[in-house]
Design a binder for these strands. Structure first.
Lengths: 255, 255
DNA sequence: TTTTAACTCG
DNA sequence: CGAGTTAAAA
């Protein structure tokens, strides 16, 4: 038996919005410690990991580990039907073929119950190794979203160059080139920690899908290291995160 | 000679918006007591009845009964060209081939006159019998509209189950199922009067067209009885109403 | 036909 | 600022 109640449907909405563009279906792993979800994106290029600790919930009970194969597009549709400030209770049996979503207005005069069929998805359980990143950047999430959007206007490819003084985003294309440099501190309070400075390029369209998580967190953490996927992390209150991983483009220097 | 002046064009706009989706043409019957219109919808499934008493008008004169065969789509186009707070005067001769619409700004500096050709429509004058309904529900019209829209995401068919304690709307489809239960009272001040509890199913697309009348009234009245069409009524201020009727689906129990 | 973006209203 | 509706594009 699984039963987990969130005080605000809005949080679930934001999470699903942050996921549904990148994975249309996914397996939510529920255990006594909370919720987890890991999946490659639809095109098997990037990776997303959700973690929601049990403390995130008003009420949490999970007797046995269960995996819920969710159609995130359907879940998003259901969430479109709900008030953001209602509470939502997610429940499922120990061997579930469906998941129940119960929405209750704070005054309880309105209760809405949705039953979603579960999918049988192959689990692609990917061990994500902990990495010592060479560069760690903290900045406002809206600023990162802006930069990614702006870069996309110039090129499909975005170059991130991180040195001790600053982080620079660049894109080169038909229109011309774009360069945005952020220094530490300032009004945006950008923080840059660098062990080794580096320059990497990425496919901008994935960075842009990552920014769907912007409403979840004011600030985003970007971590880079040589020959290791980029990590973009949006904390979820104090109780979890959404992390996105994207491998850098291989420099076609030696063709 | 017919001459009827409404203080606000906005009211006429709302009425036409509530009708035009369901009947593209209709006959407006004008008499000394006011305006009436009854018609089956375009697909001859549901029925709509408009009643506007003469008190609704700032000025009302109707020497003889006249029937105006209106093209509601055209009327809607005309109304798109007008200011909502202008007054509108509807006039026609005793044997009219056209109707005149006169719009005047409150300061009378702007006057616009539109002449619409009338249609010769077969009258389908349907006696609508008064019914003692087993269940009568009063709720916010916006809430009803929301529920109808939400249900449509799940199924073409909506089930309404009304008991003394609560009214429940349900839909079952490919995604899963949806159930919304409203209890009496609360912030929405839902009122439920029940003689006999019942369960009926309806084609959701008609319910959704009914909700085009939502801007007309804050609250909507829904009446049900066994083997009788559902009635959805939107009062128009204190001087009239729009009523929609829709027969329940026949339970295909005995196939 | 379905989904997404832009515009308008509250 | 958010929501809804409409129009355009896939």
């Amino acid at each position: 038996m699984l039963e987990a109640r969130l005080g605000e449907t809005l949080l679930l909405k934001k999470i699903v919005e942050a996921l549904k563009e990148i994975i249309s279906q996914g397996t939510l792993d529920c255990s006594d410690t909370g919720f987890q979800l890991q999946s490659m994106d639809n095109s098997h290029v990037s990776l997303v990991a959700l973690c929601l600790q049990r403390d995130c919930f008003e009420k949490f009970r999970c007797d046995r580990n269960v995996s819920l194969g969710l159609d995130l597009k359907s879940l998003a549709k259901v969430l479109k039907c709900t008030n953001s400030d209602d509470t939502v209770t997610i429940s499922a049996s120990d061997n579930p073929s469906k998941v129940l979503l119960n929405f209750n207005s704070k005054e309880s005069e309105r209760s809405a119950e949705y039953e979603l069929k579960l999918l049988n998805l192959e689990e692609d359980h990917l061990g994500i190794p902990d990495t010592d990143y060479a560069c760690t950047i903290l900045m406002p999430s809206t600023e990162f979203a802006h930069i990614c959007r702006d870069m996309a206007m110039f090129s499909e490819t975005v170059t991130i160059a991180c040195s001790k003084q600053a982080v620079k985003f660049s894109a080169n294309g038909d229109l011309g080139s774009a360069n945005i440099k952020l220094s530490e501190g300032g009004k945006m309070n950008v923080s840059i920690q660098v062990e080794d400075q580096l320059v990497q390029t990425f496919a901008g369209r994935y960075l842009n899908t990552f920014t769907k998580a912007t409403p979840l967190a004011d600030r985003v953490k970007i971590c880079l290291a040589a020959e290791v996927p980029l990590l973009v992390e949006y904390p979820i209150e104090d109780f979890g995160y959404i992390r996105y991983y994207l491998a850098p483009k291989v420099d076609d220097v030696d063709v």
